[in-house]
Structure formats: structure tokens, C-alpha cells
Nucleic acid binder design. Structure first.
Lengths: 244, 244
DNA sequence: CTTAGGAATCTTGGTCCAACAAATAGGCGG
DNA sequence: CCGCCTATTTGTTGGACCAAGATTCCTAAG
């Protein structure tokens, strides 16, 4: 299988032999931001100044700015110029809003396996760090699930429950990754479910997980959480086949 | 403070009164993909054909393509043209590799804990999927570690070894995350080590892990891999304190 | 006659330039 | 204080050239 070209070079900001002029300018602008210590809200030089500074044509600079805009790092407005922003998280979510291309089934499977690894696999660390406050929050969030919500709201609460669970790990890297996968996870949660499903099945599955958590029952926690995750994904798979 | 303009219009593909020409072309290309039912691997028309089709200048089309490239939806190669891809997941994770700013000690700890979870925690799935070919590759990669390399090369090989290990899971999402963490992992690997350390200690620790893997010894695998990871991080911590 | 090799040509993305349009910040005058 | 004007800046266009991969076509060997 032929791998697609590694475009992440741009993202990682390292110089490369295969750098195009646009890639170079992207890197130079990022270096400029870093060296000048520019923060969110600060302004970048005008396009023409960047042209002169980096010895590139205006089109090249503009294409570089398009990339930075797409990554949610700058916000360009006519006459105002470019200012530093940080919309990376919302950009990450938007990536999957493209109705253009359906997210592949393999992607869903991978994400679900990832969730299993993160949530079920981290049982030792979760129990090590578990505080009463965590249990209170989780109960409170799950309580909202029993109220009346539409499908979108219910899945958001379901997601919030799992985020809160993962947050027990107190690991920013893991939490960020989990949040980035949110759009995919939401779709997994919604497929094959009704408002009623969330209020009854999902709610009680969560309660079972919390009971095991409260009782410091590691095996029970793992079993119930894994079962819960598999149940959701089974619904998802049924729906995928039905619509296929 | 003024809110930044809502660029997500582009992502959601709805026409808007404030659409720029580039936004319009992005939407048109997306509609083209949807209507023509183009799948991953299919080719898009050439830039010049898109110009004629959408009645836009070439620069405008190019800026639109830059956006689609940044979103990981198309892959453009000179003389070949643009082909449909779907690297949205890895793009989403890459968004957060823009953290060139100084990495805090907490970040290193989090990443190391993440690695432990990914590599040690996935033992069941690894053993389920393990093929002879995986072991061959791992031995070959580790063999390179025994050769003479400078610190940078050695850490790259060390990283390649762990990537190959994780790749056994056949999970693109996990692999993407692991690759995004590469810069940080490399720094963890390099701290407190010498060229000699890689050739001797790291090499033999890897060999121990592979021996357990070959013997299908799950507990031994977990123990040795975890020990290996902790050893590396202990070096890292010592160095951090020494330089602090 | 067939065909493999290579040379000439065509195509295509990458870059640059110049010009104009549109929008607005900031100054000027009332 | 308010409204108009202008200079500046981004947005867009069309055209040009380049480098290199793809294609075509010719040639020469078999």
C-alpha cells in the first residue's frame, strides 16, 4: 500500500529537502511568531511585508496564509490583516463535519478500539487517582441523561460522562486526544439509538459502571465498561449494515 | 473583544452571502466530489479544468486546493494532479503538534504515561494480532540500533521500533497519535543517554521484549516493556533535575 | 515486421508578476 | 461629535514561465 506523502512536515515545522516555497514560508511565519513571542490577538505583518521579508511572491505568501488559516492559527480580515488566534480545537471538529465524504467504517472501528484502550485499559491508574469528587461529578452528569433531551443533547451528555471518566487520569495528552475524537464518538453514540435508549439503557449501564467504581471493584468496572462500549458499537454496526 | 469571523461556513459547505471566491470554489469542489461520488484514490480534474468549470482564476482554485489539502481531503502531486484522500484524523491530531512552545515537565510525564497505556496496555490486542512478519521487522529494526549512529539517528531507530510495535494493532487512529507525539518522545529518549546507551542497554531491553513476544509470554512482555519505558524516563528525570 | 530504447513533446503543478476591485481604518474637515 | 475621503490592505484575476513527470513518436536493433 502506497503511503500518501507526508504533509505533516509543514505541521511539525521542520525544514525538509522537498520543501516547496509555500512550505518554507509557512515555516518562516511560524518561526516569526515563535521568535517574536506573538500571542493570540497580536498582528502579523502585512502580506506585502512578509513577501519582502521572506523574499517570496505574494501568491506564495497567500497560499501559506491559507494553510495557517485552515489550521486555525491565524484570522485574516481585509484591511485589518492577519491576527494570531487559536481555533485549532474547533477546526479539528469541523474536519468531520464534511458531509462530502463519509467517515469510513475502519475509522469508526479504530476509534472505538482506541476508546476501549483508553477507558478500560487505564483501570489501574483510574482507581489509583479516583477521588470522591470524581464520583460525584460522574453521578451528576449521568443524572442529566435521565432527563428529557433530544438525540444530540443526549449524546453530548453521554460524551461528557466519558470525558469526565478519562479526566480522572489527569493526563492532558490523553484528554486532548479524546476530545479530538469527539465528532466520531458522537456519531458512534447516536447511531442506532433513540432518545429513549439514552434515558434507559445508556443511563443504567453508566450507573453500573459507577457502582463498580464506588465499590473499588476493578474487574467489575472493566467488565461493565467494556460491555457498555461494545453495546454501543453493536448498535452502530447494525445501523451501518442496515443503511449499507 | 470582537469575535473572529466564522470560517466554519466553509467547512460546513453552506453557501453564504459573505462567501469569498475561494470559499465558493471550495464548496463547488466538495459538491463535485459528492455528486460524482468520488472515493479515496480517485482523481480530481486538473487545476486548469477546475478554473474553466467554476469560472475562477487559477490562483483562486489553488488557494481552494490549499484548504482542501490542509484538511487532509486531497493529496496533490506535481504532474499527477489531485487525488482524493482521507487524512482527516491524522490532521486533527496534528493540529496539536503546533505546540512548539516550551514543553512542560507535566507534558513529558503525560506523554510517557500515554505511551505506557498504548504499548503496555494493549498487550491482549498485540498478542492477538501478532504475525511472524511483525517479529522479523522488529528484530531487523532493533538490529540497526546495535550499529554505530549518532544520538539523533539512534533515537529515530528507537522510535521506529516502538512505532512498529504499536503498528501491530492495525489501528490508524492510535498510530497517528503516536506519530504526533514523536518530537516529544524523541526528546524523552535522548535525555540522559549516550550513543553507547542505545547500543547496549536500549538494544538489549528491546531484545528482552522481543523474546517475551516470541514466547507469547504476556506477563513477561508487559513487565519488560514497562521496565524499559520506566528506565528511559528515569534517565530523563535525572537529567531534568540536573539541568534544572 | 516487431519491439525495446530513447528523444522530443506535451501536460501539470509551482511560482512569480502586474493590475484592479472592494473594503475599511484612520485622518480630515465641518 | 459626526460624516466624508483617501490611502492602505486583502481579494481576485489573467498571464507568464519553469521544472519535471507523462506521453508520444521515432529509431534502430533483433
Amino acid at each position: 500500500m502506497a503511503l500518501s506523502r507526508d504533509e505533516s512536515i509543514v505541521a511539525l515545522g521542520r525544514a525538509s529537502a522537498t520543501d516547496s516555497a509555500v512550505d518554507t514560508v509557512v515555516r518562516q511565519i511560524r518561526e516569526l511568531i515563535a521568535e517574536a513571542g506573538l500571542k493570540v490577538g497580536d498582528s502579523l505583518p502585512t502580506e506585502r511585508e512578509l513577501c519582502a521579508q521572506f523574499n517570496a511572491s505574494r501568491n506564495t505568501v497567500r497560499e501559506a496564509m491559507r494553510i495557517l488559516k485552515a489550521y486555525g492559527l491565524v484570522d485574516v480580515r481585509p484591511k485589518i490583516g492577519a491576527t494570531i488566534t487559536d481555533n485549532r480545537m474547533s477546526r479539528a471538529f469541523e474536519l468531520f463535519s464534511f458531509n462530502t465524504m463519509e467517515v469510513s467504517r475502519k475509522t469508526f472501528q479504530d476509534v472505538q478500539a482506541f476508546r476501549d484502550l483508553l477507558e478500560v485499559g487505564s483501570v489501574e491508574q483510574i482507581f489509583d487517582r479516583l477521588k470522591d469528587r470524581d464520583l460525584d461529578d460522574l453521578h451528576r452528569i449521568n443524572g442529566q441523561l435521565a432527563e428529557n433531551h433530544d438525540l444530540q443533547e443526549a449524546s453530548e451528555i453521554d460524551f461528557a460522562f466519558h470525558v469526565r471518566l478519562v479526566s480522572i487520569l489527569d493526563n492532558a495528552a490523553i484528554l486532548d486526544v479524546y476530545k479530538v475524537m469527539k465528532p466520531i464518538i458522537l456519531r458512534i453514540m447516536q447511531k442506532g439509538k433513540t432518545r429513549r435508549t439514552f434515558k434507559t439503557e445508556t443511563f443504567s449501564e453508566h450507573e453500573d459502571v459507577l457502582a463498580a467504581l464506588s465499590a473499588r471493584d476493578r474487574l467489575g468496572f472493566q467488565y461493565r465498561l467494556r460491555t457498555h462500549l461494545m453495546t454501543g458499537f453493536r448498535n452502530f454496526n447494525d445501523e451501518m449494515e442496515a443503511t449499507a
